[in-house]
């Protein structure tokens, strides 16, 4: 694995390029539904990188929750709120400033990453896939309280979303 470029690395870079190009598509598309569709491609790229990192469980959860549920919610919202679809309304006045700030952030992050010496394992054989059982044990023993809190949070969020989105009694 250490010598030269392996097939995994090639796949990783392909996925990374797909992911980043789709992400750029999300933030530059002139059509809001296109942005949502690019978002799906970016999510698929992220899921692929999870697969490369040998965490199939997170990859599948990503596809299940983001890929179908979140994307469908977003498409619904886009369809419900597209009264005036002017392309110029998609970008604010401070666009150059925003781009500059984000590029600065990117430079700072990459600089930090390059400047740091990471204590990664010496050889790839030290990187072992994390089994589903390990993840399950961790979630249901060490992280059980956060897990329960997340469950409560989800149900509260569900109620809140229904409250927010449901029409008032006197609406019609």
């Amino acid at each position: 694995m250490e010598d030269g470029v392996t097939a995994t690395q090639v796949v990783f870079w392909i996925l990374a390029v797909v992911m980043l190009v789709s992400a750029i598509g999300v933030i530059t598309a002139g059509n809001i539904v296109y942005a949502a569709l690019f978002f799906i491609a970016a999510l698929a790229g992220v899921a692929g990188i999870y697969l490369i990192l040998t965490v199939e469980f997170i990859a599948l959860v990503q596809l299940l929750i983001y890929g179908s549920a979140v994307v469908i919610l977003i498409l619904f919202a886009l369809m419900l709120t597209r009264a005036r679809e002017r392309p110029q309304a998609l970008f604010g006045r401070s666009r150059p400033l925003g781009i500059a700030a984000a590029l600065g952030l990117m430079a700072a992050l990459i600089g930090g990453i390059v400047a740091t010496t990471w204590t990664t394992p010496e050889s790839s054989s030290a990187i072992q896939p994390v089994g589903l059982q390990t993840i399950g044990d961790a979630i249901f023993t060490i992280w059980i309280v956060p897990f329960i809190i997340v469950g409560v949070l989800l149900s509260i969020a569900l109620d809140g979303a229904i409250m927010l989105a449901s029409p008032d009694e006197d609406d019609n």
Partner: peptide, 30 residues
């Protein structure tokens, strides 16, 4: 496996792209 630095750099770029979207877009869903 790709090197850790490569993954981190890709993620940093993705994060910055997201930040750029937040700063430049005006539609709430976007």
């Amino acid at each position: 496996m790709p090197a850790l630095e490569h993954i981190l750099v890709v993620n940093a770029i993705l994060f910055a792209i997201g930040a750029m979207g937040v700063l430049t877009r005006r539609n709430a869903v976007l």
